[in-house]
Design a protein around this nucleic acid. Sequence first.
RNA 1: GGGCCUGUGGCGGAAUCGGCAGACGCGGCGGACUUAAAAUCCGCUUCCCCGAAAGGGGAGUGUGGGUUCGACUCCCACCUGGCCCGCCA
Length: 1045
Amino acid sequence: MSADQPSRNPDPSAPPHRYTAALADAIETRWQQRWEAEGAFRQPNPGEPGFDAARPKFYCLDMFPYPSGAGLHVGHPEGYTATDIVCRYRRMHGFNVLHPMGWDAFGLPAEQYAIQTGVHPVLTTRRAIDNFRRQLKRFGFCYDWSREFGTVDEDYYRWTQWIFLRIYGSWYDAERGRARPIEELVREFESGEREPCLNPNAAEYTGAGDIASDKPVMPWSQMHDDTRRMIVDSYRLAYVGAQTVNWCPKLGTALANEEVIDGRSERGGFPVFRKPLRQWMFRITAYAERLLRGLDTVDWPESTRTQQAEWIGRSDGAEVEFEIPGTLPLRVFTTRPDTIFGATYMVVAPEHPLVDAALDYPGPETDVDALRAYVQAARNRSDVERQESREKTGVFTGVYVRNPATGERIPVWTADYVLMGYGTGAIMAVPGQDQRDWDFARAFGLPIVRTVQPPPGFGDEPYLGDGPAINSDFLDGLHVAEAKQRIIAWLEEKGVGRRRVNYRLRDWLFSRQRYWGEPFPIVWDERGRHHPVADDALPVRLPELADYQPVESDEPVPLLAKATGWLRTTAGEAGVRTLPPDAPVTREANTMPGWAGSCWYYLRYCDPRNAERFVGEAAERYWMQGTPPLRGGSVSTSPSAPPSANGAGGVDLYIGGAEHAVLHLLYARFWHKVLFDLGLVSTDEPFARLFHQGLITSIAFQRPDKTLVAIDQVDLVYCNAIPKDFDVGHGREDELLQLPSEVELAIYKAPTLKSTTQAEDEKQLVTVDRLTRAEIRWLQQDVFFYHESDSRLKRVDPTVAKMSKSLRNVINPDDVIAEFGADTFRLYEMYLGPLEAAKPWNPRDITGLFRFLQRAWRLIIDEETGEPRLTDGANGARSASECPSPDSPAANPIEKLLHRTIAKVGADVERLAFNTAIAAMIEFVNAATAAGGLTRSQADRFARVLAPFAPHLAEELWAKLGGRGFVSHAPWPDYDEAMLHDDEVEIAVQIAGKVRAKVVVPADADAARIESIALADAKVQEAIAARPVRKVIVVPGRLVNIVVG
RNA sequence: GGGCCUGUGGCGGAAUCGGCAGACGCGGCGGACUUAAAAUCCGCUUCCCCGAAAGGGGAGUGUGGGUUCGACUCCCACCUGGCCCGCCA
């Protein structure tokens, strides 16, 4: 703690052993050193010395941080404190606890920072990690730091690359519903068991709709090697595909849609083009159904499961073929095949092959110039731009198809509201039952036929609801669900359609043109074919690069292409066995995206130093599945062995932000399922229980027009003395504050983000009587003002806002720890409110938790001597003689309350309700203080209850009380169930729903007895006032409700 | 446009299964201690009305309806604030 930091209680006259910030700092750093020196939280693995197989396991994971140069913000310790409390609590219950921490350190921000400052990301990342580690250790979190690693460590990304190769070397067997090694596919082709044709389920081939149905022209053995390769590659779970991206030549990189504004880059304003780019893709779509179904097996927040399900976006419908005379049919996907009789025209995406065909071989009605102009304009527009305007645009292609249901010839249009990336890139337009089709038909004068009868009085708009079919031949009268079944059966019978499930999920674009990421373990030969680097040649190290400025180019050039010495090598040098050693090769110069490292880090924590395997089998099984370690050597896991029997399990508790609800959690599940299918991990899902901590927000101020005011941009004033019915003129911008004439304002700068008690010269706004100079305090209402630039005083309202640099409302955890200590910080964040809720940081409130720790300390420790001050057990008893044996308790209310506190805190920790657990401890300390103190046994047990929350203070108390070892290792105290119940309870008596009296009844009284006691009560009789009693409801232990006539 | 969440004193929040609304903390007010202040300790603190006080009465969990002996809690509609997804056929 630096000397100029403010600290609590600087008063030298305070007792020498008061719990001050300085004492907290001394206690906390001392215990942190002892924990570290003695390896207090080191958790051995099965088979290691000190491992206790008799204990149950608990794997509790935090989302590891991206170590930015800015250091921790207050959101990090929120989730980390929560898991820390649960881990400490479970450890005290005798669990083997795996509680690791590491660094998600590859990624864009470090690289951007390097570009700006010229400092290499290796250095900035190392510095940021050191700072994060220092900050986290200062919180006293019980991580097993011996398991720490970063995703940038060669020992780690070596295995990230290894897993990539496993995915690359796998295909998804749709019949068996799981991934298998690619060699098994090749064997099936060789044996003739499987027809050697392109993968019919490959997204990159289904768009056009034709290739997939091609039958093989020759057996596998006679195929050219390149043909075989193309077929095999079409099955790989990692494949090279062409994806249209936003390409910015000036920045030399592809940009996300969010980074492109009006066709220019958000940063720099450089032009951006849509360009197909050769990219590594993951066939995550193969897992769509598994990823969807798995959501039912995990204990996750409902909202997150819903979000993932919607992201996957399953829709059930049909694929229908519309005949085009003289060529292949146009295939569409629809969720409403029942409306096919109302399909009056077709629309294809501007990128659809049919459009190109129409341009190359225009029909008599094709307006080639208009079509070409429209298509070019549409293709160059980004998705974002396409969505900006809902105005329907489009051009007729000149092509007609035949509606298989009506037999009618209907026109094919192209329009950019149809997307090439979904379904088949073509739709049948049914304006009668679809808003978009309706709008389009209206705009271009196309016919509208209703095929579902709308309810009477329905307006001039498409009808999306249920109703009997009309104008639909044999479907007429059927409701939607039944009509769907009937028409699908009909389509299948006619051979022009089939039932089909479609997913919104797209394949995962996995390569970036950046420097600061994992290199791919792939090389390209001279003929442009990819080859894997052999497992034993890993890692493919990220080359040193002095210049990581983006490459300015019209053609995509990944940054690693600058490392020419690294880039061009030979197969032997690169460790590629599928080519002769002297064959020249070019390394894959793309890098993996930031998500890669976080897809499997939870597995590495189980066994982070393993040099032979990405995670040891026994360790993985023990921590992920809970299966006891197997004796007598290794288990055979042939890659093709079926997945282990149940596959249930995963990380027991995973806490992190909801911003990862979809991407990280979906990507990690995908990798995990591939590893599971290959028999490399033992569970089907990685995270059994997931929880999101809420965002910690801060304050900002809002002008009447709702614009936000940064807290230091204006001269803020804090006031709690405005008369409550005083109108401060909120409504008009230019209205000045007008106070009654006898009042003048004394205005001081407000200490908005510091605790008010520390502010000495930063006085609050007060109102002063002009005659007497006396301070006037009317009421308890917070009113805030600021000086506008014209120096007029105006009112602003405090509001909740995200912490941001621009609003100057960011809290630095280091400052808070310096002022109060880590234990207070931990308690404060946990006391703020429910863990999952968004909560505003209010510096004013921190002091309450600090005072609680002070009272807890003073309850047990004499502030003069620093030694325990304990009572003989008569505390709270009516008299010492009534309480013969110290903690026995019947007559000792503090003992009873302690039992209840132990029970309450334990139950609350289990349900992650830390705020109410802390409230219970505060109540206990207050009651015990009032009662005069605790016995040694009570103090001992209380220290253990406090330990998960304020571990440093608890260790200090424990040591002073003569406890052995660490309180962190002490068992959680027991409670006596009998102590939780009173002999007598006070229950409320309601007359007609209003509480009119309270009566005391024996706790075990039955309903009839309670009723008679209640009715006998004088107040009750008075309230009934001789009205007839209609009914009496008795809820034992709660209340009596008397219904009168 | 769709989906999800949210709304309780001056503030953060509590009420775990439909059963005494406001636990606990902050802030505020009053008191003790002190030359004084800070710190600490004690008491009061949802609002309104009556009362010197003890006490009594009424209202009350965003708004309006409903179910129920009883609703912060369940149902319907609406409003506020927030988050997510968006022409997904």
